[in-house]
Computed example of a mutant assay.
Amino acid sequence: MSILPTTNELGFFEIRLESIGGLGANLAGKMLAEAGVLGHGLNGSNFSSYGSEKKGTPVKAFIRFCEPEVEIRAHSPIEEPHVIGVFHEALYKTVDVVNGLQADGIVLVNSERDMEAVREELELDHGTLAVVDAMSIAVEENTRINTAMLGALYRVLRFLDVDKMRDVIRETFGKKYPHIVDANIRTFNRGYEEVSFKSYEVPEGAEQKPFERQPSRLGYETQEIGGIISAQANSIAKDLSGSRQGFLPAFEQEKCINCTHCDTVCPDFCFVWEEREDKRGRKQMVLQGIDYQYCKGCLKCVEVCPTSALTEIRETIGYSDEHRVKQTFPYVEGVVK
């Protein structure tokens, strides 16, 4: 008897994880596939799609399960998944995370917001929505969010045995990092226990989310001769907030001595300066604040600040928008949000 709740026309139960580099979705996909194959005797496959292997870049992990007698000959990205896991809400800004979701599909989101707010933003009319504050769990347990997300996935996918995943966690981390095994087990357990979910009735004849493949902006027909990149200063249009993992720097201008140590170690355009006169009438650059659009949360600035004008705080919803001081790029118009 099959343990899979449903399959597509090829006999696959498919899961897609939408994430950002640095959150551990690639490893989560591998662990999930391993638990299904070795722990449950299913046939399965897993692979990931990512770009430059750095924090902040979009990552997708694809997991397929089927019965042992079904051969897996499909190795393409999953376009019409039964389950989608969203590791960071910042993805909403650039990626249609529920692209191609089945009509009765399940969406798991890492968020501290209430379920209805998440549902409204995802425009999810039917199916099952699950929400877990995986970031808070990971921060409190000093781990990454991937094991918390796996715990939540196991809660909504009831055909999977939690003990099998605990064995995989011990096997995965035990060889190289035995000191973090217990913390990741706790993170997994908390994700399983703290996830909340709600199912919305699927009306008769309801259609799945249409899948739309994003066309490439540059290809062999549209690329400039010689591979020229004609867009100037294109990095200033990026939103790096998705790279943060629960913490960011807070700025107190009263304590700042404008030493520029923070700007020296900052890898991006975070710090906003303005030319002003000091008490003696001499011109100098004065730090006005932080443009959180470019802040990855590396906290190097906090480490080098000699006056504690920059301190590490736990990121909360709306803080970065409320305290953001926007950069101005006088030679580039219409690029910065």
Score class of each variant (00 low, 15 high):
Glu274Arg: 09
Ala231Thr: 14
Lys283Ala: 14
Ile257Met: 07
Ile290Arg: 03
Glu277His: 09
Arg280Glu: 14
Asp239Gln: 10
Cys256His: 08
Arg244Val: 03
Arg244Trp: 00
Phe247Leu: 09
Glu274Tyr: 03
Leu240Ile: 08
Cys259Asp: 04
Thr260Glu: 08
Ala237Asp: 12
Trp273Ile: 01
Cys262Gly: 01
Leu240Ser: 05
Glu254Cys: 08
Asp268Ser: 15
Ser241Ala: 14
Arg280Pro: 01
Ala233Asn: 12
Arg280His: 13
Gly242Arg: 00
Phe247Val: 05
Arg282Tyr: 12
Lys283Glu: 15
Arg282Val: 10
Tyr292Lys: 04
Gln284Leu: 15
Gly242Ala: 03
Asp268Gln: 13
Glu275Thr: 09
Phe271Ile: 02
Asp239Val: 14
Cys270Asp: 02
Gly289Asp: 07
Gly281Thr: 07
Ile290Leu: 11
Val265Ser: 12
Met285Phe: 05
Gln232Cys: 06
Gly281Cys: 07
Ile257Leu: 05
Tyr292Leu: 05
Asp239Gly: 13
Asp278Gly: 11
Arg280Tyr: 10
Gly246Met: 03
Glu254Pro: 05
Arg282Asp: 13
Ser243Arg: 06
Ile257Gly: 02
Val286Ile: 13
Ile290Phe: 05
Asp239Met: 13
Thr260His: 05
Cys266Leu: 12
Phe271Lys: 01
Phe247Glu: 07
Pro249Lys: 01
Asp268His: 15
Asn258Gly: 00
Ile257Trp: 03
Lys238Trp: 03
Ile236Lys: 07
Gly242Gln: 01
Gly281Met: 07
Arg280Asn: 15
Phe247Met: 10
Glu275Val: 06
Arg276Glu: 15
Gln288Tyr: 02
Phe247Ile: 03
Gly246Ala: 03
Cys262Ser: 01
Ala237Phe: 08
Ser243Cys: 15
Gln293Ala: 12
Pro249Tyr: 01
Lys283Val: 12
Glu274Lys: 12
Gly242Leu: 00
Ala237Ile: 10
Glu275Asp: 06
Val286Trp: 04
His261Leu: 09
Ser241Thr: 14
Pro267Thr: 11
Gln284Val: 12
Glu252Ser: 09
Phe271Gly: 00
Cys270Ala: 12
Gln253Met: 04
Ile236Thr: 11
Pro267Ser: 12
Gly281Ile: 08
Glu274Trp: 02
Arg276Thr: 13
Asp268Phe: 15
Glu252Lys: 04
Ala233Thr: 04
Gln293Lys: 12
Phe271Met: 06
Phe271Trp: 07
Lys283Ser: 15
Ser235Glu: 14
Lys283Phe: 15
Pro267Ile: 14
Cys266Trp: 05
Pro267Tyr: 08
Val265Asn: 11
Asp239Pro: 10
Arg282Cys: 06
Cys256Thr: 05
Cys262Leu: 04
Asp263Ser: 13
Tyr292Asp: 03
Ala233Glu: 07
